[in-house]
Amino acid sequence: MEGWLTASGEVFAAVQGWLFEHLLEPGLHLAGLDNWLELGFDGVEFVLVGLIEVLLLLLVLRPLEAWRPAERWSDRRGVGVDVAYTLLHRLGVVPLLFFLILQPLADLLDATLRLHGYVPFTLESVLPGLVDRPVLTFMAYLLLLDFAGYWQHRFQHRLEWWWALHALHHSQRRMSLWCDDRNHLIDDALGAAWFALLALLIGVPPGQFLALALCTRVLQSLAHANLRCSFGRWGNCLIVSPYFHRVHHGIGIGHQGDTQGCNFAVLFPVWDLIFGTLRLDVPLQPTGIDDQLRGRDYGAGFWDQQRLGMQRLFAALPWSDARKRA
């Protein structure tokens, strides 16, 4: 196993280097973008990891869905657009867009803070024992980011205007492994900004960020899979399972009640346990939003969904006419 992983790593590095040197680097140099060579090199890695991830979804999760589906569908209408969302995200199009917009802003803020004497700390500087223990550091960051992810998700359900965007994610009636990235672009941008600010505060390095993103994404795909699978009473409290997250997407339970839903955790349900939003006692429900049963349309295609999301957002803003009338 060890040898196989090492060999795989070397093959991966060789492919990344070849692709960069033969496809991307000449173009960047020709365009006068030599400042972006390192970023381009990292970008090739991102795309390659995304490709591997999509292959894993197709080769492993998809057969599992076919074998033990949580729901049996007569057809797969509406799933195709989720595949498009997945490819746009995991092959780097959406992340690159947000990087280009957000990174200069984050750097400007960082530089301004430092000119006033503030140097952002890292976990290692607060906990010196982590300095030469990267796996522990990795775990600590994972836990912190997951905590931030939990509260981001709570706000997505709690704030009416944010829910107007996030509802797109919940509107899939045929929830499958492709559903994780089905988000409104502004919802994605808010999430990216949320984590960029956090990175500024606790110093999450780009290198580890990719690994964190990879773990999060694969687990999230699994959590969304149309898979009749629970990790058991204790397992469901440790790691988000397909059952755990399907409850979160269930009509009538996933976004109702005092907390506007339940089971908000991204990776570790311990946050739901601590903050009283854990529900492991309910049978699986059909997924979607209750107003869809009354005929509300969330759109079928990508642009349709984005447009309708914008309309819902404007209607939910405090100063909107629709809100005032209500």
């Binding site: 894993l56 990267p134 290198g207 990879l214 687990l219 790691i239």
Partner: peptide
């Protein structure tokens, strides 16, 4: 799957 993805992520770094 969970274990493999975890380690593949770590080994990238």
């Amino acid at each position: 799957i969970r274990c493999l993805s975890w380690w593949s992520g770590l080994r990238q770094r």
